[in-house]
C-alpha cells in the first residue's frame, strides 16, 4: 500500500512541464520528485491486503493524493524563494496560481476521508491512515498558503534593491525548510517514524536561523531607516519560512503517530526566542 513517492507520483506531475525557468532550488525540489527512493516499508511489507479490494484502492489513492499535494507544496515553496531572490514578479504570480491547486487537492482529500469514515468505519492502522491524511493535508495546505504569502512579498519588494547578506540568510533558511519538508514527506510515504522523528528534532535549526535573521534585520533597520520597508517584508517572509518548519514538524508528529500509534513523547527543543526579544540599542 505504501511506496516511495516516486512511484506514487509517476504519471502525475503537470507542474513540471509548466516551469521551464527553474533555478537551483526549484530544480532540486523537482528532481526530488523523480529521484529513486529506497523502498523503506517497515510496517507495510508484511501487511496483508484488505479483503475488500476497493478499500485498499481508496487508501492507496489517499496516499497518491498526499504525495501529489506534497510535491506541489515543495515546488511552489521553492519557487517562492526564487521569486524573492530574483525579484521575479512573474514567478511570484505562478506561485499564487498554483496554490489554488493545492487548495483543491485539500478539499478532495478531506471529502475522501469523510466519505471513508462514513462508509468504511476504519479501525486501528486504517483509522490512523485516514486521520493522518486529514492532518497532513491540512498542514500542506497551510504550507501552500505560506508559500503564496512569501511570493506576494516578492511582488511587493520587486523594485527595491536587495542587500546580499540578508538574501543569503533567507536562502539558507528556505533551503533548510525545503529539505525538511521533503524529508518528512518521504518519511510519510515510506512510513518511517525514525526519519520523521529526526525531522521533528531538527526544526530547532530553522528556529535558530530565524532568530539570527531577525537580529540581523533589526540591526539593518536601525542602521538605515530607509530599509525598514524592505526589511519588514523580509522579516515576515522569514517568519513564514519558520512557520513552514512548524507545519513540517506537525507532519513529522503525524507520521510518528501513523506508524507507531502513539504521539511523540518528549519535548521538542525550541530556539525561537524572538517573541521575547526587545528592540533596544544597547
Amino acid at each position: 500500500m505504501t511506496t516511495d513517492r516516486k512511484t506514487l507520483l509517476s504519471g502525475f506531475m503537470p507542474w513540471r512541464t509548466s516551469t521551464p525557468e527553474t533555478t537551483k532550488a526549484t530544480a532540486a525540489a523537482s528532481n526530488e520528485l523523480t529521484r529513486a527512493e529506497p523502498a523503506l516499508r517497515p510496517k507495510g511489507d508484511d501487511m496483508n491486503e484488505h479483503i475488500v479490494k476497493s478499500y485498499e484502492d481508496e487508501l492507496a489513492l489517499l496516499d497518491r493524493k498526499i504525495a501529489q499535494m506534497g510535491g506541489l507544496a515543495e515546488h511552489i515553496l521553492a519557487q517562492s524563494f526564487d521569486a524573492i531572490e530574483r525579484r521575479d514578479p512573474k514567478l511570484a504570480e505562478q506561485v499564487v496560481k498554483a496554490d489554488k491547486q493545492i487548495d483543491q487537492l485539500e478539499r478532495e482529500i478531506e471529502e475522501q476521508v469523510i466519505s471513508m469514515i462514513a462508509r468504511r468505519q476504519p479501525l486501528a492502522n486504517d483509522l490512523r491512515h485516514v486521520m493522518a491524511a486529514l492532518r497532513v493535508t491540512g498542514d500542506l495546505e497551510r504550507i501552500g498558503d505560506l508559500a503564496k504569502n512569501i511570493a506576494k512579498r516578492a511582488l511587493a519588494i520587486a523594485h527595491e534593491s536587495h542587500p546580499k547578506p540578508l538574501m543569503t540568510g533567507m536562502r539558507h533558511m528556505g533551503d533548510l525548510a525545503l529539505a525538511q519538508l521533503k524529508e518528512v514527506l518521504d518519511a510519510y510515504a515510506a512510513r518511517n517514524a525514525d526519519r520523521a522523528l529526526a525531522v521533528w528534532r531538527s526544526d530547532e535549526q530553522i528556529d535558530s536561523m530565524y532568530n539570527s535573521l531577525f537580529r540581523e534585520l533589526l540591526t539593518y533597520m536601525m542602521e538605515d531607516p530607509r530599509s525598514i520597508g524592505l526589511s519588514t517584508h523580509l522579516l515576515f517572509g522569514a517568519k513564514n519560512i519558520e512557520r513552514v518548519g512548524d507545519h513540517t514538524t506537525n507532519i513529522a508528529e503525524t507520521v510518528h503517530f501513523l506508524v507507531r500509534g502513539v504521539n511523540i513523547a518528549d519535548d521538542r527543543p525550541k530556539s525561537d526566542d524572538t517573541s521575547s526579544t526587545l528592540f533596544s540599542k544597547s
Binding site: N48, H50, N125
Partner: peptide, 19 residues
C-alpha cells in the same frame, strides 16, 4: 484494541485483512 492493537493478527482481523 481498536486504535492501536499490539498483535498483528488483531489488527488484521479488526481492519478486515484476514487472509
Amino acid at each position: 484494541i481498536f486504535q492501536n492493537p499490539t498483535d498483528k493478527r488483531t489488527q488484521d482481523y479488526i481492519t478486515g485483512r484476514f487472509g
